[in-house]
Design a protein around this nucleic acid. Structure first.
Lengths: 212, 212, 212, 212
DNA sequence: AATGAATGAGTGTTCATTCAT
DNA sequence: AATGAATGAACACTCATTCAT
């Protein structure tokens, strides 16, 4: 009845997960170049070279970080789409999506935005991996936006501008929001998501499916 | 009646200006750590150590960069405020401000956003200098926004969120806009500025100064 | 009636033999420093640290290699001496010795020459062990040469030079001979051995024991 | 009346020459991998990283070493060929060539043989550079040998074997010759060169141009 | 017996900074 | 003013070796 994974396999996977999460935070904080192997290793009471048991290189470590982060974040966003899409119409889905994204950024994965939207990465391979993830992320929001706008093909020039405004707002959020302030993360997520939907799909543009 | 500046003083100041502008672009492109003294010096056909005739350290060079950039950008934004404020009311001023900021970002100072909104700077001193400039920059927009909203004291929670949405849009703009595309910078500036004003000062909120 | 060796002892000895032979080839190919424990271990599907069950250190592994190689090679050369010496006179023995040495080098133990004549070994202990083996090897040829020359005490200065020419030829052989070429190893061995005898014991110098 | 080289250029060139010669000796002694930048730098009272003012990498340093050595050695051998060729016939030239090569090896450039004939170099680029130099070196001797043998096209199989015997003797020479011994370098060169010519161009094979 | 984990020592390389010229 | 020369500090990466399992 073995699942093919020995206990040591699991231990190792956990270790890797811990390291990748730790590294994601440090990379997000200090940038790719300024993050050293010792920085990452010391968070688990290891010495720098020990990381080579788990990652073949600094690039490899970074790849692990962003892939794990992306996977976890996409899982949450995809779940939102699945849960709300058919029930309540695309406008509601889009708002829920914004809300979820906001919570991810300021409550659950503070390293998400720095990692994917701020880091300057001197390695082309990694740079394009990051860009690909960003493209996938944008595509998800764009898909729902298209549905909500009722357009069938692609975004009009002005629609795109407004969507990019929303993206900008999202990527800027961790730069100013402080959870210690008056607004709880959930409260902010509710309000800001509403605003963003209004920006991306102005009320006069929204074509409710039900109305004739 | 000398002005106290010798010819060599002027030469030196010009040299410094050139270096700072050059450095600003390189810092913006590669980040603080990845930018070397040689990188900067070579753009003026100098060798790295020569920069020490003009800057006491890498930090000092960076400081010069951001202060010069900030000065130049603030000059343009201040000019907009002075030119339009009294004539046409704060809403128009705000829109003009957005327009100007957009042109600065995508046409005239492409290094502005990377320098002040994306760079991870490992030196606390520099980090806070950048933050201070950001704060000043935000304060300018906030002042006009307050006027346009008719509030007299400070921004309400929701107003702040909408203003931050606009800031986000502005700081994200260089990440997606390509001047080679269909939209000329000026055209984009016009459209986007209008959208941003709508976000920050919704029409139903705008209190025209003229109406009693 | 056990011989004092358990089955596991034999297994272990076999394992060691395999490892030493494997290591000899790798050392010969890549040099002492460039050969890692993992390199050697992987040839037997082991991991690097496992070698410590068989060898106390890298030096120890290397020692094992060269001692085993030396033993095997000396056995073959000694056999030649025993087989041919009394029967046909020292000149024939010397030629057979050269022939055997050549076959060892290019057909049976390609690692012999690299291991003992080319490797730079940064450990003095190992270096002198190698030198000792080389000295023994040379002594064997020198003994037979002395017999063939009819001298009784030691080599004259010129005789030594000619013998070293032969040694040089032997140690250089693997650097140029390619078995894929026109000459089969055995054919080359025959021809080259004859030349070498001519060099070391010129015909006019050879004192046949039988002739009055 | 400038020759286009400033004083600092000359200083630099001298520094590089010193470093390359020093490095050649150390490389020859310890091998490529075991030679560190610090090893080389310390011989000139420098620290390791200082070498990067003169060489872009370890490979570059090594390349410099072998090219300089090759150039200097080839100059001497070429000079011999030019000086003796027409005057005394190819057999004499060949003997002079052997003599010169021997003096190079044991008196003037002790690092020549280790550098080109013993080192294991883990970098393919460097490996092939070394091989190319070896090929050029061999080609020089082969050319004169062909002349001395009177063959017009290429070496017969047996001629080649005898030439390789000579090459082997030459590459082995530094392994056994000690200048402290009874034989002065020049004396050894004379004797050994004569032997080598006898090996490569046996008297009965030598076709004197003048004799009918 | 075998090995994953861990590490200290070492190496090539980069770079801000100093200094003499 | 400009720069070659030099270096200490830092860093990614390798590897022989130890140890617990």
């Amino acid at each position: 009845m073995s699942d093919g994974f020995t206990r040591s396999d699991r231990k190792r996977a956990e270790r890797i997960a811990l390291l990748e999460r730790s590294a994601a935070k440090i990379f997000a904080q200090k940038g790719f170049e300024a993050t050293s192997f010792d920085d990452v290793a010391l968070t688990l009471d290891l010495r720098g070279p020990s990381l080579y048991h788990y990652f073949a290189s600094k690039e490899d470590l970074f790849l692990g970080c962003i892939r794990r982060s992306a996977t976890e974040v996409f899982a949450r966003l995809d779940a939102i789409v699945s849960d709300t899409n058919l029930v309540s119409g695309p406008r509601v889905t889009l708002e829920a999506l914004f809300r979820e994204q906001i919570l991810i950024e300021i409550r659950d994965y503070p390293e998400f935005v720095p990692l994917f939207f701020r880091l300057l990465i001197p390695v082309p391979t990694l740079q394009s991996e990051v860009l690909q993830i960003r493209r996938n992320h944008a595509a998800l929001f764009e898909r729902i936006t298209l549905l909500a706008l009722g357009s069938q093909t692609s975004l009009a020039s002005d629609d795109r501008v407004r969507l990019e405004i929303a993206f900008g707002a999202l990527s800027y959020l961790p730069s100013w929001y402080r959870p210690e302030g008056a607004l709880a993360p959930e409260e902010l997520a509710n309000r800001m998501a509403r605003h963003l939907v209004d920006v991306v799909v102005p009320v006069d543009r929204f074509t409710t499916g039900s109305i004739v």
